[in-house]
Amino acid sequence: MTNHDGAAAVRPLTRAWVSRYLEVGERIVGTEALHGGITAEMRRLTIGTRGGGTRDLVLRSIVDPFYVGHAEDSMGREPGALTLLEGTDVPAPRLVAVDPTAAHCEYPSLLMTHLPGRTVLDDEGLEERVPLLARQLVAIHALRPSPRPWGPGRNPQPRPPKYVTLTTADTVVVPEGADPAAWAAAIDVIRKPAPPYEGRFLHRDFQPGNVLFDVPPARPADARITGVVDWAGTSWGPADLDVAHCSTNLALLHGPEWGPRFADAYEEAGGVLAAAASERLYWQVRDGLACSEEVHLVSRPWREAGRPELTTEAVAERLDAYVTSLMDALG
């Protein structure tokens, strides 16, 4: 086997499990670690076909003890989402197999098809990509799930589970050197109950690191989205929450001004956000403050993907600027 990365080797039990889902005469002939994930190991598996060609699959394995404890939920949501997305205009992987409780593999694992394209995190071409991201998110929110199981042992439900937000006023981590008054005001925002909303089908981690693009080198303006991946957090909740999450990520990747610009692009694409500015602010602030607890986790895969300047400190500074700008806009 060609192994492009020592960390990419497939463990014996998992290899045997994957082999059960291959066609007669197929075998794993190569593996490659895919960087960028926070909660799981990702590998691209090159499969040798009986006719002498190859095809690719993607293997997700949850190995961190903390996330293993939540694997049955996340590994239950993603198959439901991928099944729903088949036959829609949303480009997503196709589910091949899932072992949510590690009954057959060393760790909870999910096997899916591989999509063409690559993540693009550079500043160059962002002006063209933001409207594409916005239109794609509008299309996701337009989905209307039919009853199907959304997790092991569950009865069919008309939609995925309700969204969860874990950040509280007491868990926010104020960056060093941040404006204390702005952050105190922001924390007060999330002390209030969540505003009412009309439920939508949410990706729950829609951001540039989970969107694949085809960008012609000679014509970057002709970029197109080829896939949306990582549906483990699929939820039911307010469109504002997905928009706020992508806004935060764009603000940290490219500068604080890109957060509001993405929200504007989402509305220009036909998306509907909360009518009241205070309600929009609630979701924007909530997602920004949630990021305060994991700046080091968020910034690491960005550096691995070719943005070495996005140190933990640099990202924390951008987060402070973004949260402060949100509170300034409130007046």
Rank of each mutant, 00 (worst) to 15 (best):
D122M: 05
P180F: 06
P193H: 10
P108F: 08
E176A: 06
G117H: 09
L121V: 01
P175R: 01
A142E: 09
A178V: 02
R135M: 03
P180S: 09
D122N: 04
R135S: 14
P156E: 04
P175M: 14
R154P: 02
P161T: 00
E128S: 01
A178M: 10
N155V: 06
I187N: 11
P131K: 11
Q136L: 05
T171A: 07
M112Y: 12
A184M: 04
P156F: 09
D179E: 13
R144W: 03
A186L: 10
P116E: 13
W150E: 03
P175W: 15
V173W: 08
C105K: 11
P152F: 09
A178L: 06
Y163L: 14
H114L: 04
S146W: 02
D179P: 12
Q136G: 12
E127G: 00
P152V: 10
D123H: 14
P180D: 14
V173T: 05
A181L: 12
P108V: 01
R159N: 08
S109V: 06
R118N: 07
L137H: 02
P131Q: 13
A102N: 13
A181I: 05
P161E: 12
V173N: 04
C105S: 12
V174Q: 08
T168E: 03
P108A: 08
W183R: 02
P161C: 11
D122L: 14
R154M: 10
A185W: 06
Q157R: 13
R191S: 06
E124G: 04
P147A: 14
T167R: 04
H141F: 07
W150V: 08
K162E: 05
P175N: 13
P161D: 08
A182C: 06
H104V: 03
P152S: 11
P161V: 05
E176T: 02
G125D: 12
T168Q: 07
P116F: 03
R129D: 13
D188Q: 13
S109W: 14
P147Y: 05
V189E: 04
V189M: 00
G117P: 05
P175L: 14
G151E: 07
P131Y: 09
V130R: 08
W183Y: 13
P158S: 09
P193N: 04
E124T: 09
T165R: 10
L121I: 04
Y163F: 15
R159W: 10
T113R: 06
C105M: 13
L126A: 12
G151D: 04
T165C: 03
G177A: 07
R144Y: 00
E124I: 04
S146P: 00
A178Q: 04
A102Y: 15
W150S: 07
Y107T: 02
V130G: 05
R159T: 11
N155R: 12
R154C: 10
S146V: 11
A139L: 09
R144A: 15
V174C: 10
R118K: 05
L133R: 01
R154W: 10
N155I: 02
L166T: 06
D123L: 15
Q136H: 13
P145N: 03
H141W: 01
A139F: 00
P160M: 10
A102R: 15
A134K: 01
P145K: 07
L143V: 09
M112F: 11
A142M: 07
K162W: 11
A142V: 03
A139K: 10
A103V: 14
R118T: 10
P180L: 05
R148D: 04
E124A: 15
E127M: 00
A134E: 07
Q157T: 07
H141G: 02
A181W: 08
S146Q: 08
